[in-house]
Design a protein around this nucleic acid. Structure first.
Lengths: 140, 140
DNA sequence: CTATCTGCAAACCGTTTGCAGCGTT
DNA sequence: AACGCTGCAAACGGTTTGCAGATAG
């Protein structure tokens, strides 16, 4: 089963209806190898389903985010792009030039976190780690 | 010399003029122990200088950011708050409840980054690390 | 004296909301 | 048949811009 089918099933179990514009948005996000903002998603969705409205894109994003299937990615240029959500301890590596996004697992932070908790008295509950650079293709 | 004086000097060297509304904004940001958004800065600046306009806050933020004296902090709730810029390899630890921000130095990421570069072919040039939790006061 | 800065009002633009009709289940 | 979904248009709210007068250097 493809990722978009899985997402559609989850949406349906949640009480959502499966409509053509929604399928278009889900497919775009499930297949994307980079974070996309609402405008970009709208533009792409339009190619499959020209009648779609931007509002439907926003509403579908809201639902997908509520189900933790996608999440907002923060970058220098803005924080309005969405990507498949991290699973477990995944973080993200982004190409600064083409936007290509790669998720990776890497949790060597335990020691740092424990030391900081001791030093600052904070109780640390979450961490964000993002790496930026150039993907192989963009180094050329 | 206090931090706000240092910042004001840097602005002046850059060709900016030192005006009362600007001094108010600079002092607020230099002294803040948490990230503040334009509206919050405006509200506080107003107390010292009631005639100040929101626009001046935005324009001062722009200058301070261009001089790398402050930077935008990204949080779940939004990405519009500014904090004293990180120096060198500093990262940030934020209290989810009161917003208190602490900068810390902690760079155990070399190994992770080298391993990822080898594995993905990316050339990694930057990383963001943010920790979230509860400060000592907010744990009570 | 001159260039920069200021506050105001208006323009902007991405996002959200209200609504009447449509489509899924 | 019922309820959710759709696109449209209007509302919204934060940010930016144009401008004429004020002010730092």
């Amino acid at each position: 089963m493809s990722l978009s089918e899985t997402w559609l099933n989850q949406m349906q179990s949640d009480g959502s209806r499966l409509t053509a514009p929604r399928r278009a948005v889900v497919e775009i996000l499930a297949e994307a190898d980079q974070a996309l903002d609402p405008g970009e998603i709208f533009e792409r969705a339009r190619r499959q389903h020209p009648a779609i409205g931007l509002v439907t894109v926003y509403r579908t994003l809201e639902k997908l985010e509520a189900l933790h299937l996608i999440e907002r990615i923060h970058q220098h240029e803005g924080c309005h792009a969405y990507l498949r959500a991290a699973q477990g301890h995944e973080h993200v590596l982004l190409c600064e030039r083409c936007g290509k996004a790669l998720r990776f697992v890497g949790d060597d932070l335990e020691d740092l976190i424990t030391a900081l908790e001791k030093r600052t008295g904070f109780l640390i509950r979450e961490h964000w780690l993002q790496l930026f650079g150039l993907c192989p293709a963009c180094q050329a």
